[in-house]
Design a protein around this nucleic acid. Structure first.
Lengths: 337, 337
DNA sequence: CCCACTAATGTAAGCGGTTACATTCGATAT
DNA sequence: ATATCGAATGTAACCGCTTACATTAGTGGG
């Protein structure tokens, strides 16, 4: 019932070694026998057993993808969806399977290497102090993080967060905004801190005031961006511009502003970060710092496959450039009051 | 360097059969030797090779998850994200790995069974006339579709689309709306047709007019919902209510309405379908037909695992009930002009 | 005290491939 | 014609487990 390489060998009147060679495109096979074998393979509908191949070659042909736990509020973040698109696209090209794991209960990544289910790991949404990563590095297991962490030998791919934020805030400053608020996610993630630092240093370079009441923490969802903005709006005078370290925060915040009857960008200008699909569809369309998310995904796969196959060595740390996408929400130059 | 069962056996001074028994919780092992073996396992940091186990037991311990191609416009649809949440959650509980595939270039699902990479398949976003599914059914490969298709022996899990749509539109009719527009996705997907039929039969039952110009096709994205609504708004008199077969369409359509300076729900009432997270966060919050998406995901896994392990037989067709979630966008009862 | 029986453990075959090494065979050089 | 060589193919070991069957040890009954 199940087709095996032996059956093919018998029918084609060759040894299974030869069948194996044909299937693996070994050069030392006559064209004639290659055809004969392939004919039988076709007729029989034979597909080599992946598990058998993986056992003998000691390769899983598989990359593990670790995403946040299902109960994590960030689970469906469009950034994740988009980078997974990049992973899926490139993994197929590189002929690796993608195994999906959910990061629950201090999940022990290393096990996936020990029991040889994966050749490498891709990790999304890892917090800066995650200890598991250090183990992976020390054991020289191939892996790539999406986003920098504290451990300095970690392999990661990230965007130029500080520069992106700096440019966005400078842009607002050059538009003559004096009071620029900040909404951003927890410093548990390094990229949030970097974006905040970019914000700060832009304020400094433009001699703008920085106030505790102008910066609000959120958890990178629309709801929390909304709540954060409502708090900011309670202070007076209210800021004339908001830089949100995350598009979802920006979108939530914009809702709070509209609800208050204020206009965007006339009363309050907005810039977000990420450039998720939704950003351009906002009303007004959201000016934002674009990360090349899909490209980050494909690059991560290429790098990881390089590490797996031994072509790439040492700690890999890549930061892709960001780009300020100017739309309506940031408005025009602001007249002095 | 690599730990194997033989090493464990040697150190524990037993045969590898015994080690295997211990690891698989076979009852016929003395408590004493079980402890001795486990001690060695711990000390050595031994994890059994997944591939070896899978080869001998002829089980992949893996479920394949087939999602739309990366270039497909629906790739990041929140419905998919949410149902995948359910899959991931339940697969972990059932101890199956989840293998992610992208449905490109007429991808041949069957191969995944032939080369024994998966024990079963979960398919998302499959069109009604997909021929691959018939093969799966005929071969009795375990699989579950998310959404009904034309093939009547197909295994699927779906929501009560017709009833959901019927109730939504009836609700609008009872609010005294006479002219109710429809925006919905392509009939390539059966659920879209069912929702449309639910819409139609509600119109009939309430003696409401049906007009070609009141129904608009879209592709279930905000952009296309927006475009569809702009077309509808060109006719006059414009409808007083819109039922969108998809929340994303509804959200896009709402934007077009607001842009025109019309009020929701006073000028035009809205009801969507799905109840994605975004729905409740709209302004006004979107009334919608809720599908139990997460639960559909977990149910699908349970069913599929049942099929794989031979406990569940025959064609599986499940429709989970929907529920009308009433929020602001559908408004109050409408006075006659 | 021996035998039969059961529970615990061991032995070895097999899962379905890959690959190092051995063999065969035809062509070329001598 | 024979020795030499290389290309094509075959042989068999091995990857790391599971499990049917064989063996051993331990127990109680006659």
């Amino acid at each position: 019932m199940r087709k095996t390489i032996d059956q093919v060998a018998q029918l084609a009147k060759v040894s299974k070694a030869t069948v194996s060679r044909v299937l693996n495109n070994s050069p030392k096979v006559t064209e004639e026998t290659r055809e004969r074998v392939m004919k039988v393979v076709k007729e029989l509908g034979y597909y080599p057993s992946a598990m058998a191949r993986r056992l003998t070659t000691n390769k899983a042909e598989t990359i593990g993808l670790i995403i946040p736990a299902p109960h994590d509020r960030t689970f469906g973040n469009p950034f994740y969806t988009e980078i997974i698109r990049g992973f899926a696209h490139q993994a197929k090209i590189k002929k690796y399977d993608l195994l999906l794991f959910t990061n629950e209960h201090k999940f022990n990544y290393s096990q996936l290497f020990y029991d040889r289910r994966v050749d490498g790991l891709l990790l999304i949404g890892v917090k800066r102090n995650d200890k598991g990563i250090i183990q992976l590095s020390k054991k020289e297991f191939p892996y790539i993080l999406t986003g920098k962490i504290d451990y300095e030998d970690a392999n990661y791919i990230d965007a130029e967060n500080r520069r992106g934020a700096y440019r966005a805030v400078s842009y607002l400053a050059n538009l003559n905004h004096k009071k620029i608020a900040y909404i951003g996610g927890s410093f548990e993630f390094v990229f949030n801190q970097e974006r905040f630092e970019g914000y700060l240093s832009a304020l400094q370079d433009h001699n703008l005031e920085y106030g505790k009441e102008l910066t609000m923490e959120s958890i990178s969802t629309q709801e929390s961006g909304y709540e954060a903005m409502r708090k900011i709006l309670k202070f007076s005078p209210i800021p004339t511009a908001v830089f949100a370290a995350n598009d979802l925060d920006a979108i939530g915040a914009m809702k709070a502003v509209k609800e208050k009857g204020l206009r965007i960008p006339e009363d309050i200008a907005f810039i977000g970060f990420d450039d998720i699909q939704l950003a351009s569809f906002m009303d007004p369309p959201l000016t934002t710092v674009r990360q090349p998310i899909f490209e980050m995904g494909t690059t991560a796969i290429n790098l990881l496959v390089g590490m797996i196959e031994g072509r790439v060595k040492g700690a890999q740390q890549i930061e892709l450039p960001t780009q300020l996408i100017i739309r309506k929400s940031s408005g025009k130059i602001r007249m002095c009051k």
